[in-house]
Amino acid sequence: MLTLEFFLIISAALFSLGFAAVLTRRNVIMILIGIELMLSSANLNFIAFWRFGPDPDALTGVLFVLFSIAVAAAEAAVGLALIILIYRHFKSTNTFNFSLLNG
């Protein structure tokens, strides 16, 4: 039978994969993909805790995830606009080339 920890471990694996992408990849789009994966894993945690929590009728987790998805959409739009702007300036999406603030 499915218990809460099954879903929490999936969520932890998703988070770690996204985290690994943020830490190791050199392309800003790949870093954004990692951030999106980590956001998804947090949302999955909210839904899992809502489903297995003591009071599912309160709908708290579902409402939180709805707002979280809206904020994530806004974040993706602004982040991708920034990537377009940076690409236009540096003609590259590799973080090695963005060393303007490097001391």
Binding site: F7, E36, S40, N43, I47, A48, W50, R51, P56, G61, V62, V65, L66, I69, A70, A72, A73
Partner: peptide, 14 residues
């Protein structure tokens, strides 16, 4: 997990 509405919103938005 029983949150069908969020699932469809996820498909739509993500």
């Amino acid at each position: 997990l029983g949150a069908e509405f969020v699932g469809f919103i996820q498909l739509l938005v993500y």
